[in-house]
Amino acid sequence: MSIELTKEDRQQAILSIERWFRENMDEPAGNVTAGALLGFMLEEIGPSIYNKAVADVQERLHARVAELDFEVHEDEFVYWRKHDAKTPRRR
């Protein structure tokens, strides 16, 4: 599965890479260089980030599902326990 960005997100990422190069490197990166670097990062590093995000979501969902029993659990066959507690015993 390849990681695809929308056209707008891709353009924002390229602008961000260009700015990073201007502010942190001796030579600026042009649009083509920044686009190539972005493509490399999406293909080479992107899957690791994506997989980590999926694993984090799975962990959160598993924890949430485990909590469901406590949140929605209903005791069974409680009518007589409730009834017996309210009414005095007949003799």
Rank of each mutant, 00 (worst) to 15 (best):
D56M: 08
M25K: 14
Q58T: 10
D9F: 00
R90D: 09
E8M: 12
F40P: 06
K52N: 10
Q11Y: 08
M41C: 02
I14M: 05
W80H: 13
E74V: 00
D75S: 15
V32S: 12
M41T: 07
T87H: 15
A34M: 03
F70R: 15
R60I: 06
G39I: 08
L42G: 04
G39H: 03
E44I: 11
E18W: 14
A55V: 10
R90N: 05
E59V: 05
H83D: 03
L15Q: 14
V72I: 12
N51E: 11
E18V: 13
P88D: 10
V72G: 12
E67C: 09
I17R: 03
E43F: 06
Q58M: 08
Q11C: 01
M41V: 09
G35R: 04
G46D: 01
E67I: 02
A85G: 02
A66K: 05
E43A: 11
I17V: 08
E18S: 04
W20V: 01
P47Q: 13
Q58C: 10
D26E: 06
T87D: 14
E8H: 12
E8Q: 13
T87A: 15
W80C: 12
V32H: 13
N31M: 08
Y50M: 05
F77H: 15
R60T: 07
E23A: 13
A29P: 09
E27R: 14
F40A: 07
R81E: 13
L38S: 01
I49E: 01
T33Y: 13
A63Y: 14
A13G: 00
A13W: 05
Y79F: 12
I45E: 11
Y50H: 12
V32K: 15
A66N: 12
Q12F: 09
D69C: 09
R22T: 04
A63D: 14
E44C: 13
S48N: 09
A34C: 00
E59Q: 04
Q12M: 00
I45M: 12
